[in-house]
């Protein structure tokens, strides 16, 4: 565990809490892509199956349980409790275009052709693109609430910090995992355009609004 990973995990946790809190306090999930949340639910489920098969540390297990629980809670709030506020007309990204290639790629490029390993690989590939329905929704409506922007920023920072973590681990521990690194770079790059808007607009007190 190094400082980059710890800060990355904290940022990840913060993103999830910001989102849950926003939905709970406003009693609404307007502006949030349910499809991205379903994809994240699938990502956590397929990656954290190893909770049963391998123990790494108490920290690791607790965080996994928290991520799973928070993800399912978000999905429940969106699709059951506050279903009426879900903006499905603007959430039109076709997720099969992400899931099918992620399955295919996981079957083709993996560390080992075993069920748990392929599910892990699938979750890494899917996570890298799982935010696309949300970004698509923001681009479709042309705007995002500040709180939604904070959520997206924290979620983007998380994978960015993981990149620093991987650079550190390569240098300090001689450890690297190419699948995670390549997918992590893709994931971080997808947030770059958003980071620019966040810094130039949201941090200056303006609403995130795309040019018409």
């Amino acid at each position: 565990m190094n400082i980059f990973r710890l800060l990355g995990d904290i940022s990840h946790l913060l993103a999830i809490i910001i989102l849950l809190r926003k939905i709970w306090m406003s009693r609404s999930c307007a502006g949030i892509s349910g499809k991205s949340q379903l994809l994240f639910g699938l990502v956590y489920t397929t990656r954290y199956l190893d909770l049963i098969t391998s123990y790494i540390s108490l920290y690791n297990s607790v965080m996994k349980v928290v991520f799973l629980a928070a993800s399912y809670a978000t999905i429940y709030l969106m699709y059951v409790k506050f279903k009426a506020t879900y903006d499905h007309n603007h959430d039109t990204f076709r997720i099969e275009f992400l899931v099918v290639p992620a399955v295919a790629l996981a079957l083709l490029i993996n560390h080992d052709f075993q069920v748990v390993e392929i599910l892990w690989t699938f979750s890494i590939y899917l996570e890298s693109v799982a935010i696309l329905p949300q970004l698509f929704m923001v681009s479709k409506t042309g705007e995002a609430e500040s709180i939604t922007s904070h959520y997206l920023f924290a979620l983007g920072v998380y994978r960015g910090l993981y990149l620093l973590n991987w650079i550190y681990r390569f240098w300090a521990e001689d450890h690297y995992d190419l699948i995670a690194i390549v997918a992590g770079v893709v994931q971080t790059v997808l947030y770059c355009d958003f980071f620019y808007l966040y810094i130039t607009k949201v941090l200056r007190g303006k609403k995130l609004q795309l040019p018409a």
Binding site: S57, H111, D112, E117, W120, N165, H175, Y176, D177
Partner: peptide, 10 residues
């Protein structure tokens, strides 16, 4: 050394 299967990250 590459520790490919040590999925010790979240």
């Amino acid at each position: 050394a590459v520790v490919a299967f040590a999925h010790d990250e979240l």
